[in-house]
Simulated assay, not measured.
Amino acid sequence: MIDRESPVPIYYQIEEYIKQLIETEALNPGDAIPSEREFTEQFKVSRMTVRQAITNLVNEGYLFRQKGKGTYVSNQKIEQTLQGLTGFTEDMKKRGLKPGSKILDFKLAPAELSVAKQLYINEHDPVYEIKRIRLADDLPMALEMSYLPANLIKGLTEEIVNNSLYEYIEDNLQLKIDYATQVIESSLSHEDEAKLLQIPKNAPILLIQRQTFLDNGQPFELVKSKYRGDRYKFVVDMKRV
């Protein structure tokens, strides 16, 4: 099980062993893993070595700790490829998950200069401002703030936003969504964000800003999202050029 002659560090071998237990469903989300002492006795290694392996898996999102209780298997991360443009609702449905939203704020407001520039509209033009929590199987995935020009995306309601915004834009407004530019950064959650996302304060999150365009080059959406780092990961395929 542990190859002491291998150049691969023992802590890494333990990590791979625990990952295998998770991938083969010997350990499932919510299950407690064996204690550090049990692993120490099983592998005949120091507790520091075991602790390093478990800490690495916590940082990677495979495990999570509950103070005074133990270490448990996390829900596995949802993968999203960066090659295609889909809305959150469409993406969750494709994965067999139930999409949902909890709207925290929905209002019509004059566009601030920074928002107006990215939507190619004039400062103070009306925009829909929508703050919501995005859910997958009733679990919070992201905190999202969206801005849409009201003179372009007409008749928007909370009910439409709670269903599928992209379907409404294409099917009802007969507008063609074409492409988006997206910037992804890493950060740590603040206290208010942590409460809404049901994660610890200072937990890793992904900051994502997306500017989405119609086929005529007009941006119709600016979205600033904060995704849970323990539930989401992005995958990109790259070809040598």
Rank of each mutant, 00 (worst) to 15 (best):
I184M: 13
N162P: 01
T71L: 00
T181H: 13
R132C: 14
S189K: 02
N151T: 05
Q13I: 03
E25A: 13
E158P: 05
Q42M: 13
K98Y: 02
A26L: 09
K107W: 08
I33K: 07
I121C: 05
E123I: 00
A32F: 07
F106W: 11
P34R: 07
K19I: 05
P110S: 06
E60Q: 14
V50M: 04
P149S: 12
K67G: 03
N28S: 13
V127K: 15
L206S: 14
S187G: 12
A194K: 07
Y72N: 06
A203T: 03
L21A: 13
D125Y: 09
S35M: 02
T49F: 01
Y120L: 14
D178V: 01
T181W: 10
V223P: 06
V241S: 14
L97P: 04
V127L: 15
S35Q: 01
T89H: 07
I153E: 07
Q76W: 09
P7E: 06
E221Y: 07
E36A: 11
S74A: 15
Y232I: 05
M1C: 10
L119E: 01
Q174P: 02
D138N: 14
P204L: 11
I22Q: 14
L207H: 14
I153T: 05
Q20V: 04
E112S: 14
L119C: 05
I22T: 07
Y147K: 12
I208D: 14
N172D: 15
I130Q: 15
L104E: 13
E221D: 14
L188A: 13
Q80Y: 08
E158F: 09
E60R: 10
G70Y: 02
R240G: 10
A136M: 09
N56D: 06
D171T: 05
L63Y: 01
P9K: 10
E170A: 12
G30K: 08
K201M: 12
A116P: 04
L113D: 03
N162L: 08
D138P: 10
I2P: 02
T86K: 09
Q80W: 06
E123T: 05
Q80K: 11
G217V: 03
K93E: 03
E36P: 01
I54P: 00
D192I: 00
D3G: 04
A111S: 15
